[in-house]
Design a protein around this nucleic acid. Sequence first.
DNA 1: GTAATATTTGGCAGCGCTGCCAAAATTGTG
DNA 2: CACAATTTTGGCAGCGCTGCCAAATATTAC
Lengths: 336, 336
Amino acid sequence: MDQDDDQRQRTEVTLREVSAAVGLGMSTISRVLRNHGSFSKATRDRVMKAVEELGYVPNRIAGTLASSGSNLVGIVIPSLHNIVFPDLLSGAAVALNPIGFQTVIAVTDYDIEQEQKVIQSMLAWRPAAFLVAGLEHTERTRAMLKNSGVRIAELLDTDGEGIDIVVGFSQREAGAASARHLIERGYRRIGYVGPEFSFDPRARKRFEGFSAVIAEAGASVAETELIGRTSSTEVGRAALERMLARNPSLDAVYFSNDDFAVGGLFHCFASKISVPSQLAIMGFNGLDIGRFAPQPLTTVRTPRTEIGEIGARMVMAQGGAKVVDIPFELVRGATT
Amino acid sequence: MDQDDDQRQRTEVTLREVSAAVGLGMSTISRVLRNHGSFSKATRDRVMKAVEELGYVPNRIAGTLASSGSNLVGIVIPSLHNIVFPDLLSGAAVALNPIGFQTVIAVTDYDIEQEQKVIQSMLAWRPAAFLVAGLEHTERTRAMLKNSGVRIAELLDTDGEGIDIVVGFSQREAGAASARHLIERGYRRIGYVGPEFSFDPRARKRFEGFSAVIAEAGASVAETELIGRTSSTEVGRAALERMLARNPSLDAVYFSNDDFAVGGLFHCFASKISVPSQLAIMGFNGLDIGRFAPQPLTTVRTPRTEIGEIGARMVMAQGGAKVVDIPFELVRGATT
DNA sequence: GTAATATTTGGCAGCGCTGCCAAAATTGTG
DNA sequence: CACAATTTTGGCAGCGCTGCCAAATATTAC
């Protein structure tokens, strides 16, 4: 029906057509458009006018193929539902957009097999660089990345071997610092709530650092609740409830992130458990929601945006492989 | 230093080299790789083996140029820091990934000029389709999109004129439904907290629907607090505080999203304002954080993930232009 | 004025792949 | 075994652009 009305511009406008319209060679048009090489002011105006009139949109696919160099930066993260990762992206965008680079985002759902798949398909687009969350990858992923010749930065975690650039902080040390805080404040019967270690290596490392310090202090983590892939208020709340049902004598609970911790806090409010006198609550990440809770949450503020930004800058710069540590900060609220 | 060690595979492996290695023509290799056309089982195995050994990664840039058809879908959203948009993306990914399409995400920061820019640069990559949040665009954006020939779906809002496909719900009606709820429950001195109307047209439309119903009921919105670009607990909390300082007689406040509303709820907890007897709180979006607050928040659950999924499906399908309404749902909690 | 120099422009090959079609190899038929 | 039908394979043009270099034109020097 009405295929006449629906006259989609079947024939895309190409450089050649602009060239014909202006009466100049294709190379000249191309130079003007990329503002590269020399051409007269008059030429420039004529070209721009024609481009405008014809509605020409340069074809970057052809351009990239011809010049071998895309303006795409691949970013690979486990999830978008944990504020950490949007923050990382914002940071990267701050560094990348002004220099004309576009980000292509892929989500792995905390699955390194899935990560391998998405990296493989991104590689097919020959990105200028890669930003990947974490240091844990399949062997094949590591190999692909290595001999792709693409610059890569691994973000958020410095506890391990990187492929090229690594920007982050020691997750282990962050866990340890959290434990030191709880120990100093006198807590001894401590619980832990976090994601299954199998899929979140950073949470695992934090836990290792955490429990090592607790053990040194002559205590041990009395209870743990390990939960699935969703970082949410709901599961944090439910986990704390279960944990306290099992072991009401706990005096502090460490949550692997603030979403969980706020859920825990909600449980305490709802069950009239007074915080921190009956039970201390500590989170991780320094989310807004925790900072502005009725009782501000004690947490560790992580430099996510900076990590994204610095990672992006480094990956675009020349220099050799490096590890950059961006410090986290323990923020005491009113819950410990 | 050690440029010998650092032997990055300068010469990328190409189809031609695979072809040479296997001793078959390039077209044959290409057919095997795309599993398209016919070839013998033996050939297939030989090719796959060589591909594996050489570490060949097909160059989609060349492929797309030659076949004119990319597997990229552009998604344009105002922010990643409002859970609405990650949800939209997840929905789209569910529909797109299984059929081999990759999403390229761009963020506009609620700025339609910025939107124009990002759409222009995405267009340069000749995406197979576009998913864009909202109906409000610059004239130029609309024109570019129209004669790009790329299929486009506008998401989240059905109050207005779409370019092609529109999937969402009536924001105005959602606001009106919220107002009806508050009126029915007997509230009359009502406040509103939301983003500046200038940059968030959907919030504006909700407010319009909301205030129209309030007016019909013989009341009017007694107080409004309009705030900047950040949707966060903090600003919601501060806004409510200011509002109540000005006008302590309010009996209900409608927040334009749950983040704000939870901030308001926190203010009430902290200031010992009893909810809902002294003050009713209502939010919008149906976020986890609101549902599992000590007092579950009354809110409107919006079908974000479905909208993303259905939008993606429609944009990939044939059919003509359409408007699809995905219903929202008012969820009464314990705060009204 | 001409020669030397600087600026602007055009032509053409080729980036790595796919689509098309014809050639070669394989299988089936009487 | 010849011939037709079918399956598998290869050759080549060309997608739209850029990089290179040479040609044309403008500018300056003497």
